[in-house]
């Protein structure tokens, strides 16, 4: 059996050079992540391509969310968490001392598992990001940004008459689209989505998936998902993780139709995970 090959010896870059065309916007090289003494990610090597959707899949605890949170340094908040290796965004190491984490998070937005609008009005939810980054000096410009963001998130028609109503009063799916609108209001380059549909019903999920596909034109999207069907439907690239190692990375069609690694095969056919 050739699957005795240790995962870190697999050399994911082989697949990439072979299969993937397009401009890479994020390069992760030799990334290790530790929570205290426990290592959660081992020697991660991964490229994220511009204007595409990359889905990170794998069983629970495999490190996919940990990696996602590395891209906007959300792990900084956890005091025991330590990240080594290099992650470059636009050829700039995001851990370099001159990089301001606030500016980084403006470039790399995030949408969370559970919709988490601020308990403020819909307008203030969207306007918060532009305000703290001082992107819109005038009220007129801010109004425009709010309208544009809501339109891009497909929420304008539902929300335009109730902009001053609390965002928490929307339905779950609407709240999640509000969170997406909030994330894109600061004009990020990359949007990270951590299981954005896991708390939603199938209809709301379908809407979000449709939205993700539209947003791909403008933004680079990295999505963590537990649904392999979802990964297959919406993403162009897929990375499969197992026990803290990146097992396989490639174009989504190839991963699902012709996985090279036995563990990938077992996972997508439902035998592990």
């Amino acid at each position: 059996m050739n699957s005795v090959v240790m995962p870190n010896e697999l050399g994911t870059t082989d697949y990439q050079t072979e299969l993937i065309a397009g401009k890479s916007i994020i390069q992760a090289r030799d990334v290790d992540v530790f929570y205290g003494d426990k290592q959660a990610l081992f020697g991660m090597e991964l490229d994220i391509y511009e204007n595409s959707v990359t889905s990170l899949i794998g069983p629970s605890g495999c490190g996919k969310s940990t990696l996602l949170r590395c891209f906007n340094r959300m792990n900084d908040v956890i005091s025991t968490c330590r990240v080594t290796g290099s992650i470059e965004l636009d050829s700039q190491d995001i851990h370099a001392p001159e990089v301001d984490v606030v500016a980084l998070r403006q470039k790399v937005g995030m949408v969370f598992q559970k919709p988490n609008p601020f308990p403020k009005s819909i307008y203030d939810n969207i306007a918060y990001g532009p305000r703290i980054h001082n992107m819109t000096p005038s009220k007129v410009e801010l109004d425009e940004v709010v309208e544009k963001s809501l339109k891009r998130a497909g929420l304008w028609e539902e929300a335009k008459d109730r902009l001053d109503k609390p965002g928490t009063g929307l339905s779950g799916g609407q709240q999640q689209r509000l969170c997406i609108a909030r994330a894109i209001a600061v004009e990020p380059k990359v949007i990270l989505m951590d299981e954005p549909c896991s708390a939603l019903d199938p209809i709301a999920t379908a809407k979000i998936e449709e939205l993700i596909d539209e947003l791909r034109q403008r933004f680079t999207i990295i999505i963590v998902t537990h649904s392999m069907q979802q990964a297959a439907r919406i993403s162009q690239h897929t990375a499969f993780f197992h026990m803290g190692y990146l097992v396989e990375f490639g174009e989504t069609g190839d991963i699902f139709s012709a996985p090279k690694d036995e563990r990938t095969q077992n996972y997508i056919t439902g035998r592990i995970g």
């Binding site: 906007n72 959300m74 908040v77 984490v101 606030v102 500016a103 980084l104 998070r105 403006q106 937005g109 995030m110 969370f112 559970k114 988490n116 609008p117 601020f118 308990p119 918060y128 990001g129 703290i132 980054h133 969170c179 909030r182 994330a183 600061v186």
Partner: peptide
């Protein structure tokens, strides 16, 4: 105050002090 509110603000690029004073303390 639910941690999701803090995460939302930090994810948007708010600093720790902004997160605390704009969201956590009012709540």
């Amino acid at each position: 105050v639910p941690p999701s509110i803090r995460q939302a603000a930090i994810g948007l690029g708010a600093s720790k002090v902004q997160t605390t004073f704009h969201h956590v303390i009012p709540l």
